[in-house]
Design a protein around this nucleic acid. Structure first.
Length: 824
DNA sequence: GAGCACTGC
C-alpha cells in the first residue's frame, strides 16, 4: 500500500494547484500527499482488497481453498458462470479460432517486449492473483462473445474481478484497433482501477510513451497517446461526446456499475445504443468502424438491459419487456415469462447481444430481523450494537447504516454514555471505539476508519449511505441496517427539491447486508421486520425520475438529439418533467423558440460544467454591459462546492474568529458574501489554511472552489467570453472592493439565470414566490436571515420542515423588467 | 432560529 501512496503522492504534487504554489511549502507539509487522490483507499472498487482476500484465502483452511477451486471449475455445469447467447455457436468456428490465435500472439508480443521492464516482476506476481479471480476462466468466452456480437451485458457480483479484467481481455482483440474506454460513476474508482490495471499489465500509468493505461477525471487528465485502455468518469465521456459524438477514438466502451443508475449512465446508454446499432446520427461518422459495448452491472437486471438494446436493433419490444412498475404479478410468474422471453429474443437478436453472468466472491451473511417494528431506529441501533458486542466474537467491527450527520452524532453520544455501564471491569468485554463516517467530515476524520483498532477494541462505524457505495470499510463483520436513507426528490409542480428520510429499496438493503461478508462470514441485523422488508420497493427509483431534467435535456440537445421525447432511455421520465425542463431551457434562451433546437447560446452553456441556470448566469456576466464575469465565476464556483462556511457551534467558536467571519459578510446578501470570502482567501498569500481557520471557513471546500474557478476561467477563455488580458489583469492582490453598481450587476446576472427564483415581501411580513405564490422563508444560515426586504433572489428552494430559500440576496423588482426588456 | 444523503462535467 505504501508504494501506491507514494506514487499517488508524486502524481498529486505534479498536478499541484497553481494557487497553492504560492505557499506550497506550508501547504504541502500540512496536507496529506496526493491532494485529491489521497483517499485512494476509499476507492469503491476493492481491487487491492481482492488481492488480500485471494492471498489470505490460499493460506487458510482447506474449506476455503476448496472455495477457490470451485470458482475455477467452471466447466462443471453446476457452476456454469457464463451464458453466452446460443447464436454464437452457429458462427464459423475457424474465423473465431484464428482471431483468438492472433490475439494470443499479440499478447505474447506484449510480454516479450516487456521482459526487461522493471514493472514486469510485479506484473507476474499479480498474474497469479488475476488467475484466481472468478472471471478469469471466462476470458475466452467473453472475447468470443464480442467477436461476433456488438453488445455484451455482463452481470458480475462483487469480487468477480470484472472491472479490472474485462478491459484487459478486450484490448488485444483483432477488432480492437482503437481504445477501450471504461466508465465509472466516481472519480476515485476511475483512478484506482487505472492504477491497478497498469500494474497488472506491467506498464507505467498515464502519459508515459510506454504506458498502456490512463485515466481522465475532472481536474486530472492522465492519458497518454499510446494508452490502450482509458478509465474515465461517465461525465467525462459525455463531455467527450460534445467534441466527437461518434467516439471515433474508441473501439469499445465498457460501462461499469450500471445498476447505480446515475443520470449520466442513463444518458450514456442512450447514446451508445444509437452508436452501436447505427441508428444514431453520429453513428455514420464512425465510417463503418464497429463500436462494441459492454454493459456491466452488479445485479442480474440483464433482461431489462437486453430489451433496451434489442429494441435499438429494431426488435419490436415484447409486451412484457415494457418496463412496468410493480404490476402486482406474482414474482414466480414474472421469472417464468422472462425466461421464455429470453430464449425468444436471443434468436431475434442473433449476432448482436450476448449476456453473461459471473459469480462473485463473497462470504455468507446471516440476516436477522426485528420481531416487532421499532418507532425509533436510533434506539434500536443502540441496543443492537451492545447486543452484538456482548454476544459476538472478536475480531469483527460493526458498521451501522443511518440517515445523516445529526443522527450519527446523537447516537455516538448515546453509545459513549452507555459504555461505562456496560463495559465494566467485571464484564470482561473488549472496548468499543465509535467512529462517525459521512461526506461532510474532513478527510482526516474519514481516514480514521482505516486505522486498525487498538488492541482489544471493537470499532463501531456510524455511517450514512457513503458506506454503501463510495467507501469500503475494512474489518466489518456485522452490519446494522436502519432501513432508512435520506433521499432527494425534485418536485416538478413546485420546482423544488425535498430531502426526506425514506425507506430504502430491497436492492439497497442487500447491498448494505453484503458489506458484512467481504472479509469473512458475517451477520446483518435489520432494524425492521421481515414482512416490512417484503414491502420494500425492489430497486431504488433511478435518479432520472427524481431530479430536475434541465441539465439532462440540454445534454441531449447539445449532442444532436432534437426530439428528446424520443430519445431511448432505460427509464422514461414523465412527460410533465420533460416539458418542464424544455420550458426552463427556453426561458434561458438555450433553445430556439421556433424549432426548439439548441441555440448558439445553449451550446455555450452545455460546454460549461454547470447547471443550465448557472451557465446562463455566466453568459450574462460576460456581456460587456454587465462586465462582471470574474466575480460571477467566483460565486458560481462556491455554489458548486460544499458549504465554505464552517458550522458555528455556540461554544467552541471564539469571538475573534466570529468577528473575522462577520467582516466577510455583505449586507446585499449571500452571493456577494461568498464573493468577498473567495477574494479574501485568494489574496491571502502566506498561509491560506491558517486564514481559513481564523475566519471559520472550510479550507477543503475553498480549495475546491479554487479548482472550479480555475477551470471555469479557462473554459470561458476558450469560449471567447474572456480575453487573455482580462484574465492576466485578474489579480487577487489588487482587490477593489465591489462597488454597488458592480454588485447590482452581479445580482442581475443571477436573476437572468434564475428568473423564477424570486420572492417578494407581502403585507403580513412573509415572503411569497412570484411564480406560484408559495410561502418561503429565508434560511437561518443566510446573512439576510430575519430581514424584511422588497424582494429576494435565491439560489435554492428546499423543503425540509418548511420551505426555505437558501443563499439569498436582496434585489429590486424593477430589475426584472429591465432584464426582460434588455437583450441578454 | 435551522440543519445538508451521495455523486459528477
Amino acid at each position: 500500500m505504501s508504494a501506491i501512496n507514494a506514487s499517488a503522492s508524486s502524481q498529486g504534487q505534479k498536478r499541484k494547484r497553481e494557487e497553492k504554489d504560492v505557499n506550497s511549502k506550508k501547504v504541502q507539509s500540512d496536507k496529506p500527499p496526493a491532494s485529491i487522490y489521497k483517499n485512494l483507499q476509499l476507492a469503491e472498487k476493492p481491487v487491492y482488497k481482492n488481492l488480500q482476500i485471494a492471498e489470505s484465502l490460499k493460506a487458510q483452511s482447506k474449506t476455503k481453498k476448496a472455495r477457490i477451486d470451485r470458482f475455477q471449475k467452471t466447466e462443471n455445469p453446476k457452476f456454469k458462470n457464463l451464458q453466452i447467447a446460443e447464436s454464437q455457436k452457429t458462427a464459423p468456428q475457424k474465423a473465431r479460432d484464428d482471431a483468438v490465435q492472433k490475439d494470443e500472439s499479440q499478447k505474447q508480443d506484449f510480454r516479450n517486449n516487456r521482459q526487461h521492464n522493471p514493472l514486469a516482476a510485479k506484473q507476474n506476481r499479480l498474474l497469479q492473483v488475476r488467475q484466481s479471480l472468478p472471471i478469469w476462466p471466462q476470458a475466452t468466452n467473453i472475447r468470443n462473445a464480442l467477436l461476433e456480437n456488438h453488445v455484451l451485458i455482463l452481470a458480475g457480483e462483487t469480487g468477480s474481478g470484472k472491472s479490472t479484467q474485462v478491459p484487459q481481455f478486450l484490448h488485444t482483440s483483432a477488432w480492437c484497433t482503437g481504445r477501450v474506454a471504461v466508465t465509472q460513476p466516481r472519480r476515485v474508482a476511475a483512478v484506482s482501477l487505472a492504477r491497478r490495471v497498469a500494474e497488472e499489465m506491467g506498464t507505467p500509468l498515464g502519459k508515459s510513451p510506454q504506458s498502456l493505461v490512463g485515466y481522465n477525471v475532472r481536474f486530472d487528465d492522465n492519458v497518454g497517446k499510446n494508452n490502450r485502455i482509458k478509465f474515465l468518469t461517465e461525465g467525462m465521456l459525455l463531455q467527450e461526446m460534445l467534441r466527437d459524438p461518434a467516439l471515433a477514438e474508441y473501439s469499445c466502451v465498457v460501462v461499469d456499475e450500471v445498476h447505480e443508475r446515475s443520470v449520466n449512465v442513463d444518458l450514456l446508454l442512450g447514446f451508445l445504443r444509437g452508436l452501436v446499432t447505427g441508428t444514431g446520427e453520429a453513428a455514420k461518422k464512425r465510417k463503418g468502424k464497429p463500436l462494441k459495448v459492454v454493459v456491466m452491472s452488479a445485479t442480474a437486471d440483464t433482461e431489462k438491459l437486453k430489451d433496451f438494446f434489442s429494441e435499438g436493433f429494431g426488435q419490436p419490444p415484447t409486451v412484457d419487456s415494457i418496463p412496468t412498475v410493480n404490476d402486482g404479478e406474482p414474482v414466480l410468474d414474472k421469472e417464468e415469462t422472462s425466461v421464455e422471453k429470453s430464449q425468444e429474443s436471443s434468436v431475434l437478436s442473433s449476432n448482436k447481444i450476448s449476456t453473461c453472468f459471473v459469480e462473485g466472491r463473497m462470504y455468507p451473511v446471516q440476516t436477522e430481523y426485528l420481531s416487532e417494528p421499532t418507532r425509533d431506529f436510533s434506539e434500536a441501533a443502540l441496543l443492537q450494537i451492545f447486543q452484538i458486542h456482548r454476544k459476538e466474537p472478536m475480531p469483527g467491527d460493526i458498521l451501522v447504516f443511518l440517515t445523516g450527520g445529526d443522527v450519527i452524532t446523537n447516537l455516538q453520544q448515546a453509545i459513549e454514555d452507555m459504555i461505562p455501564n456496560v463495559i465494566t471491569k467485571d464484564s470482561g468485554l473488549p472496548k468499543l471505539l465509535v467512529l462517525p463516517l459521512y461526506a461532510a467530515l474532513s478527510q482526516a476524520q474519514q481516514q480514521a476508519i482505516f486505522s486498525p483498532a487498538p488492541p482489544n477494541t471493537r470499532k463501531v462505524i456510524l455511517a450514512t449511505n457513503i458506506a454503501e457505495t463510495s467507501i469500503t470499510v475494512p474489518g466489518v463483520r456485522f452490519v446494522v441496517d436502519s432501513g432508512k436513507a435520506k433521499i432527494k426528490q425534485f418536485r416538478n409542480r413546485l420546482g423544488l427539491d425535498s430531502l426526506l428520510v425514506k425507506d430504502i429499496s430491497k436492492s439497497s438493503a442487500i447491498q448494505r447486508q453484503g458489506r458484512a461478508g467481504r472479509e469473512a462470514a458475517g451477520k446483518c441485523f435489520r432494524l425492521y421486520t421481515k414482512s416490512n422488508f417484503e414491502t420494500l420497493e425492489k430497486d431504488t427509483v433511478p435518479e432520472i425520475l427524481r431530479c430536475d431534467l434541465s441539465s439532462a435535456v440540454l445534454t441531449m440537445k447539445a449532442r444532436g438529439v432534437n426530439d428528446v421525447m424520443d430519445f431511448p432511455l432505460l427509464t422514461r421520465p414523465s412527460r410533465e418533467a420533460m416539458e418542464r425542463a424544455l420550458l426552463q431551457l427556453l426561458q434561458l434562451d438555450a433553445l430556439n423558440p421556433e424549432d426548439g433546437n439548441i441555440s448558439d447560446l445553449g451550446r455555450k452553456i452545455a460546454r460549461l460544467p454547470l447547471t443550465p441556470a448557472h451557465g446562463r448566469t455566466i453568459i450574462a456576466a460576460a456581456d460587456p454591459e454587465m462586465g462582471c464575469l470574474l466575480p460571477v465565476i467566483d460565486i458560481v464556483a462556491c455554489f458548486n462546492s460544499e458549504n465554505i462556511f464552517v458550522e458555528v457551534k455556540d461554544q467552541d467558536a471564539n469571538d475573534e474568529a466570529r468577528e473575522a467571519r462577520n467582516k466577510l459578510s455583505c449586507r446585499q446578501g449571500d452571493h456577494l458574501t461568498l464573493l468577498s470570502a473567495v477574494q479574501a482567501y485568494a489574496s491571502e498569500r502566506t498561509d491560506r489554511k491558517q486564514w481559513a481557520k481564523q475566519h471559520l471557513v472550510s479550507h477543503r471546500s475553498m480549495q475546491n472552489v479554487m479548482d472550479v474557478r480555475k477551470q471555469l476561467r479557462a473554459q470561458c477563455q476558450q469560449a471567447k467570453l474572456l480575453t487573455k488580458e482580462e484574465l492576466a489583469n485578474a489579480d487577487d492582490d489588487n482587490l477593489a472592493t465591489v462597488s454597488e453598481s458592480t454588485g447590482n450587476n452581479i445580482l442581475k446576472c443571477f436573476l437572468r439565470g434564475f428568473p423564477t427564483n424570486v420572492a417578494r415581501l407581502v403585507p403580513d411580513g412573509s415572503y411569497r414566490t412570484i411564480h406560484g405564490h408559495m410561502a418561503v422563508a429565508i434560511h437561518p444560515s443566510s446573512v439576510l436571515y430575519g430581514r424584511k426586504l422588497e424582494a429576494i433572489l435565491y439560489n435554492e428552494f428546499v423543503y425540509t420542515n418548511r420551505t426555505y430559500a437558501r443563499s439569498v440576496s436582496a434585489i429590486q423588482m424593477n430589475w426584472l423588467e429591465e432584464i426582460y426588456s434588455g437583450s441578454s
